[in-house]
Every structure is written in C-alpha cells, then in structure tokens.
C-alpha cells in the first residue's frame, strides 16, 4: 500500500543486519549533552572535562563569594551513569571539608541527589543545589553530625571551625584539607 511502510521495513531490516553495536551515542550521553549546553555558570563556578571525549565525567569547582565558606575553592566530581536521567549523577567532594551536609569521605547530602531526584531535573539544578549548600549549610539533614551540632549550638563557633578547617587545620581531632583559593 503505502510506499513509506515498505521503506521503513527495509530500513528496520537493514538495521537488524548491522546489529545493535552500531549505536554509539547512549541515551545518557544525549541527555547529558543537552543539559551541559544549558548550564549557565556564574563567575563563582567552573567546569572541567579531564577527558574532552567523555562528557559523562567532569569536575565542578565552586568558589563561594559570600557566606561562611567564602574564599574556599571546593572541587566536586560528577559521574553520570548509564541510567541517567532515571538515576541522579553521582557527585562527590574531592576534598575533606567540614560541612554539615558533606561527610569526610566527600559524600554529599542534597535531597535532589538522593530521594528527591526525578528525571525532569537537570544538571543545572544539581549545580545550583550544591552552591546553595555553601551559602546555607543545613543542620537538619546532616551527614557530618558533629558539624551539624556545632551549627545548631552556636553559629559563631561553627563559623570559627569552618575558618580553621578551610586552612587545613583541625576541628576536634579531625584534620581537614586546605581549600583556600589560590
């Protein structure tokens, strides 16, 4: 009947013959590509791609220009898995820092990276969320419980601890990385 149906069937048959290995760009890559082109970074953040051919793994550096973490330079690794956007990107802080929502292994507690992730969120939303953690550390949802307690008990003491930790100093018996902006 319709020629187009015939053409389509031919195409499908040809594709089947080529095998599925032919498709090089995955759904995760397609979506990540779109997200990355939409990202608009403020002057306080920058992205780096260690391997320019791999858009699924990159680093984000945040240098807050206000708040308690001003003057620091915080690096995060982003790893986008093959299930993206059905699963959130895996984000870790490369440095050991004193923060209520980031533990000393670098795991980040941000709702949209965990239970509140949904595929309509994009990488920009994650980046904005990370930036927000440095402006408004949240003691109610802690990963580093001691830091959260400090913040709840005394904002002044918490601010002093942040200062000394960022210089590579100790808070209690824990030594933190020097994250001062160079």
């Amino acid at each position: 009947m319709l020629k187009i149906w015939h053409m389509k069937q031919k195409q499908v048959a040809a594709d089947a013959a080529e095998g599925p290995a032919k498709r090089r760009v995955t759904a995760a890559q397609l979506r990540a590509q779109k997200d990355i082109t939409e990202i608009s970074l403020p002057s306080t953040m920058k992205m780096d791609f260690p391997d320019p051919d791999d858009i699924l793994n990159f680093t984000l550096t945040i240098e807050p220009d206000e708040g308690l973490y001003r003057g620091g330079s915080f690096e995060f690794t982003f790893a986008i898995g093959s299930q993206f956007p059905h699963e959130p990107p895996k984000v870790k802080c490369k440095q050991k820092i004193y923060h209520p929502n980031i533990d000393i292994e670098g795991n980040v507690c941000l709702n949209i990276l965990r239970e509140d992730w949904k595929p309509v969120l994009n990488l920009n939303a994650v980046i904005v969320g990370l930036q927000y953690l440095f402006l408004e550390p949240n003691p109610l949802d802690p990963l580093n419980k001691e830091a959260a307690e400090d913040l709840k008990n005394s904002k002044d003491m918490f601010a002093r601890n942040v200062r000394s930790s960022m210089q590579g100093g100790y808070v209690r018996s824990e030594r933190f990385d020097d994250v001062r902006k160079r």
Binding site: R31, K34, D35, H86, P119, V120
Partner: peptide, 9 residues
C-alpha cells in the same frame, strides 16, 4: 516546541 521532560527530545 514541547519536549519530553525525561529525555528532552
């Protein structure tokens, strides 16, 4: 111009 919110296509 509507796109699928999941894949953005």
């Amino acid at each position: 111009d509507e796109v699928c919110g999941i894949c953005r296509v």
